[in-house]
Design a binder for these strands. Structure first.
Lengths: 210, 210
DNA sequence: TCTCTTTTCACATTAATATGTGATAGGAAA
DNA sequence: TTTCCTATCACATATTAATGTGAAAAGAGA
């Protein structure tokens, strides 16, 4: 028996969902609320398996509610329920530890399937949400950080610069003369098109050379 | 009719998949290959709707193949196919623009459903993959980089350091004396526990102060 | 073989940085 | 009101960094 809790401000939808879930074999609704104002004590009291969480609610909304829950409870599965698949909320919810994200227009049968999937450790997502999630990943595209053709020795020196070493320290660390360090650094600056240590360090971070 | 291309090194599986897809109403296999060595010209020649791409292949593997494809073609849907749901590959594939990620143990009927879903712009994912993807999101948590209590003016100076400005440039940019810049930087070094520009810049990047 | 790149070193000079000490003024907090 | 922090500026000095010029050896590649 999967124990469900419901957070949804619309009374009709709240009733409808309750009836749907209660009327299905293997599911039960422990309680339902119209906002997350007392989410912590409620979840603590009812100990549900899955929480259906609307995002747009007056008072403490669904995302804030999720965050509150996750501060104390990593176990309970939280399935976000929303009308819109807008990017910002999706990202925020997933980042905050949601276990799934489905649209309200999901057909009843599918919704029960999603609840079951969440309860058993899956990550149910409406297709349009999954597409968005993938898009977020591909937007993380590292802009193919240029290579600048640094030689091995030059990379080594750059790494030392990033670590905040002075020429003298680099020289002693690499067992070479300070003038050699200077030579390498001249070459590095030339290749990176910079002319100071801090610019080189910044570029190393930005282009993920290190 | 959904036009599918297949990259899979195992001959049995390649044959099996071909038969499955060819034998299904509305699907056709344009061609299949055992590695991605010539993926660009092949995709260019056949213009498939969906590519089923194995990850572990000798020669150019599936992830490299995907990257190659995405350099020239953003349209074709690429569905990654693999035995393992290991974290590194999943992330790399999604980041590189995969449209879905399914395990080989997926039942045939489900696989066809996934292909269809990919073709129509969805993002099919095996449940275990979706769970992983969500986990990645919640791990993105920025570890709340320390604050160091830099004053506004100090943050401004630090930003200039990160941009590679010299004391002189900062002074002229902020309309203050170079000695004032020096004072600010002394204070910054004190607060960040460093004692050089490049260390400060590195720390700024590492702790996301800028 | 010749050329190019990398790695190494040296000497020299100017510019920039790091650091110390000290001072003034305004605003916020105790 | 006194104290603390911030922001400003000044002077001084030692260290470090940036840049130029030049050179030699080793290895890769044409």
């Amino acid at each position: 028996m999967i124990k469900v809790m419901l957070y949804e401000d619309n009374p009709q939808l709240r009733e409808g969902l309750t009836m749907l879930i209660e009327g299905s074999e293997g599911f039960t609704v422990l309680a339902s609320f119209k906002n997350c104002n007392n989410v912590l004590s409620e979840v603590e009291a009812f100990k549900p398996d899955v929480i259906l969480m609307d995002i747009d609610m007056p008072g403490v909304n669904g995302i804030e509610g999720l965050k509150l829950i996750r501060q104390h409870n990593q176990e309970v599965k939280v399935l976000m329920l929303t009308v819109f698949d807008d990017n910002k909320n999706v990202f925020e919810a997933l980042k905050s530890g949601a276990n799934g994200y489905v649209l309200k227009k999901t057909p009843p049968a599918k919704l029960l399937e999603y609840i079951l999937e969440a309860a058993s450790g899956g990550a149910p997502m409406t297709s349009s949400i999954a597409t968005q999630v993938l898009k977020m990943f591909s937007e993380v595209q590292v802009p193919q950080g240029e290579d600048y053709n640094l030689s091995d020795r030059e990379k080594e020196v750059l790494q030392h610069l990033v670590n905040g070493y002075s020429y003298k320290m680099i020289a002693s660390d690499m067992f070479i003369a300070i003038d050699t360090v200077s030579s390498h650094i001249k070459k590095i600056y030339e290749k990176l098109h910079v002319n100071s240590k801090s610019e080189a360090v910044a570029k190393a971070f930005k282009d993920k050379l290190i």
